[in-house]
């Protein structure tokens, strides 16, 4: 590359200076609460000028770095705006008494202390873990059995696959209301029950699990089908010639061969069960009573995500909800990391 010409050098510096000036002017207008309607224009022109200025910046040494950063900028900017900034803001809010409108005081760790002193929240955490464990096992089991069924040689395979997958296409809120009706008007008649399963805490929790499996097993099934279809035909053929029984084929060949798929599926079910919200909201709204920890709790079926929502939005306690959300984030991050680490190890051993 040639040495940058004097013209370019001047242009670059002028652009940078002008851009910075415009940017600062626009930001000052913005933060001082100015109502001038054209204040967006200097902001944009300023940013463009800075970018052009940087592009023509008179340096040979750092030219490549500048270009790299410039091209990465849109992505980094979007990532920061949608992920990083909300995360940092959220953590900050959890140390205040934010009520969704304004912050009046900084309260330090107060929200976190209150959160752990609240038996209803402790119950929500316990219930979520229970739900996750039950679901991780049940969804994978059901999905895997369905996948075996849908890779066998029965008639109407296409129909079965579509039918099992269909519930996944219906949103959780809709599913919740449909099943609410089913539990109170159909299931009661069939099993001759006095009232809906949803009315009692224990059975209501089972109801949430049933609906969740019904919704999610079809999706996981598709992944298992893909996994099962990638098993090379010659391996199966060889085992058949060697006289392996169907059971042996399943446990000695099919399952080990789809270990990576199992990893993906457990990971998916784990995180999605943790984040369970919509079915929980529509089906039971967390209601249900129980006598536990010496308290009479009224949130018998309320899982973590719903608890956070109710705390923040329904009970108008945004800062406390935010503190709970931070904990939720930490739990999810830890669980995901541990899970991926463990599964990776197993795959290597294989």
């Amino acid at each position: 590359m040639n040495t940058p010409s004097a013209l370019k050098r001047v242009m670059s510096l002028v652009m940078l200076a002008a851009g910075l000036g415009l940017l600062i002017w626009a930001l000052v207008m913005d933060f001082s609460g100015s109502k001038v309607s054209y204040r967006g224009l200097p902001l944009i022109i300023g940013v463009i000028a800075i970018i052009i200025g940087l592009y023509f910046f008179p340096t040979l040494k750092h030219h490549r770095t500048i270009i790299n950063v410039l091209f990465l900028f849109p992505l980094l900017f979007a990532f920061a705006v949608t992920v990083i900034i909300p995360l940092v803001l959220g953590i900050r809010y959890s140390f205040t008494d934010w009520d969704g409108i304004r912050i009046r005081n900084e309260v330090g760790l107060d929200n976190y202390i209150r959160m752990f002193k609240d038996p209803a929240f402790i119950w929500s955490i316990a219930l979520t873990f229970l739900f996750v464990v039950v679901n991780m096992i049940m969804v994978n089991l059901v999905a895997f059995l369905l996948a075996l069924l849908c890779t066998s040689k029965i008639k109407g395979l296409g129909f079965f696959r579509a039918a099992y997958f269909l519930p996944n296409l219906i949103g959780g809120i809709v599913l919740g209301y449909i099943w609410q009706f089913t539990f109170s008007n159909v299931v009661t008649k069939i099993f001759n029950m006095k009232y809906s399963m949803i009315a009692d805490t224990g059975t209501a929790f089972i109801a949430v699990i049933i609906v969740y499996i019904w919704q999610y097993a079809g999706y996981i099934m598709l992944i298992y089908i893909t996994g099962l279809n990638t098993i090379p035909g010659d391996v199966l053929e060889a085992s058949a010639i060697d006289g392996a029984t169907p059971m042996q084929t399943l446990f000695e060949i099919k399952i080990p061969m789809i270990a990576p798929t199992i990893t993906i599926c457990t990971f998916l079910t784990l995180t999605s069960a943790f984040k369970q919200f919509d079915v929980n909201l529509a089906l039971t709204n967390g209601k249900g009573s129980l006598d536990i920890f010496g308290n009479y709790l009224t949130n018998g079926t309320e899982m973590l995500a719903l608890n956070i929502y109710n705390t923040a939005v329904i009970n108008q306690n945004y800062a406390l909800g935010q503190a709970k959300a931070v904990l939720f984030f930490i739990i999810l991050a830890c669980v995901s990391i541990i899970q991926v680490r463990l599964s990776n190890k197993k795959e290597v051993e294989l």
């Binding site: 967006g40 902001l43 944009i44 940013v47 052009i52 410039l70």
Partner: peptide, 26 residues
């Protein structure tokens, strides 16, 4: 090519910024 791409990028950025800007312009 680099110039064209840089220009395309800035234009798209400006377009995004433009939308964002007019949101509070009413």
């Amino acid at each position: 090519l680099a110039l064209v791409m840089a220009a395309a990028m800035t234009i798209s950025l400006a377009a995004c910024g433009g939308n964002g800007g007019s949101a509070d312009g009413g």
